[in-house]
Amino acid sequence: MLAAHLAALYWPRVDIQGPVTWTDKVVHVLLFLAPTLAGLLAGVRPAYVVGLLALHAPVSELVQHYFLPNRSGDPWDAVADLCGVVLGVTSVMVGRALRR
């Protein structure tokens, strides 16, 4: 899963036919939702999971913008990434509360 996450964010070239739509943002949410859920459900300290992924969201967009010539960083992608982290944390918290 980590390899797919990193490949999606750092692949040197992404060819998208037609205009980029809201589906791009859904992909970003899912790219950060999955590792958040995986880390939290695996028992990694929430501060580590959330901190690392919250830092990775804007850094990945900056890397795309400045270091990958065929990619462009988008601040709204970073917002979607952070929404994925929040959704992952919320899902785990609600799931644990419902099991009690």
Rank of each mutant, 00 (worst) to 15 (best):
residue 41 L to G: 00
residue 2 L to T: 11
residue 1 M to C: 01
residue 34 A to E: 04
residue 76 W to Y: 11
residue 75 P to T: 09
residue 89 V to H: 06
residue 47 A to D: 11
residue 73 G to V: 01
residue 46 P to V: 14
residue 33 L to R: 10
residue 55 L to S: 12
residue 33 L to T: 13
residue 39 G to F: 01
residue 20 V to D: 13
residue 18 G to S: 06
residue 20 V to L: 15
residue 33 L to F: 15
residue 70 N to S: 13
residue 70 N to I: 06
residue 58 P to H: 03
residue 92 V to K: 05
residue 33 L to N: 04
residue 80 A to R: 07
residue 64 Q to R: 00
residue 20 V to W: 15
residue 73 G to K: 05
residue 44 V to T: 06
residue 80 A to T: 00
residue 100 R to E: 12
residue 47 A to T: 09
residue 91 S to Y: 03
residue 76 W to C: 02
residue 40 L to C: 07
residue 18 G to W: 02
residue 92 V to W: 07
residue 97 A to S: 11
residue 95 G to C: 00
residue 58 P to T: 10
residue 60 S to G: 04
residue 64 Q to M: 04
residue 69 P to C: 01
residue 99 R to Q: 13
residue 1 M to S: 02
residue 68 L to E: 11
residue 8 A to V: 02
residue 13 R to I: 12
residue 94 V to K: 06
residue 54 A to N: 08
residue 50 V to C: 04
residue 55 L to C: 06
residue 76 W to M: 13
residue 32 F to G: 00
residue 34 A to T: 15
residue 86 V to A: 15
residue 4 A to P: 07
residue 51 G to H: 08
residue 51 G to E: 07
residue 1 M to I: 07
residue 85 V to S: 00
residue 84 G to N: 02
residue 65 H to G: 13
residue 61 E to H: 02
residue 5 H to N: 05
residue 26 V to A: 15
residue 32 F to I: 02
residue 44 V to E: 06
residue 44 V to K: 11
residue 50 V to G: 05
residue 63 V to F: 04
residue 18 G to C: 07
residue 4 A to E: 11
residue 47 A to N: 11
residue 6 L to A: 15
residue 87 L to D: 07
residue 94 V to W: 00
residue 57 A to C: 08
residue 52 L to D: 04
residue 36 T to P: 03
residue 30 L to V: 12
residue 33 L to C: 04
residue 31 L to G: 10
residue 21 T to Y: 04
residue 63 V to K: 04
residue 2 L to E: 01
residue 16 I to G: 03
residue 56 H to D: 09
residue 69 P to D: 14
residue 6 L to T: 09
residue 90 T to K: 03
residue 81 D to T: 13
residue 80 A to W: 04
residue 81 D to L: 04
residue 16 I to V: 14
residue 8 A to P: 02
residue 58 P to D: 01
residue 91 S to F: 13
residue 42 A to N: 12
residue 58 P to W: 08
residue 90 T to E: 11
residue 85 V to F: 08
residue 98 L to D: 05
residue 87 L to E: 04
residue 11 W to H: 06
residue 59 V to H: 06
residue 45 R to M: 09
residue 83 C to R: 07
residue 7 A to D: 06
residue 89 V to W: 13
residue 19 P to E: 13
residue 57 A to G: 05
residue 90 T to S: 15
residue 48 Y to M: 14
residue 44 V to Y: 11
residue 60 S to D: 10
residue 41 L to S: 08
residue 56 H to R: 10
residue 41 L to A: 11
residue 78 A to E: 07
residue 54 A to W: 14
residue 77 D to T: 08
residue 40 L to Q: 12
residue 55 L to Y: 08
residue 67 F to R: 09
residue 51 G to K: 01
residue 73 G to E: 06
residue 39 G to S: 02
residue 5 H to C: 04
residue 25 K to Y: 07
residue 99 R to D: 08
residue 35 P to T: 00
residue 87 L to R: 04
residue 42 A to P: 07
residue 63 V to I: 14
residue 15 D to G: 01
residue 99 R to F: 01
residue 22 W to P: 01
residue 54 A to I: 09
residue 61 E to N: 03
residue 100 R to I: 02
residue 44 V to M: 11
residue 9 L to Q: 10
residue 93 M to A: 15
residue 41 L to R: 14
residue 53 L to M: 12
residue 78 A to T: 02
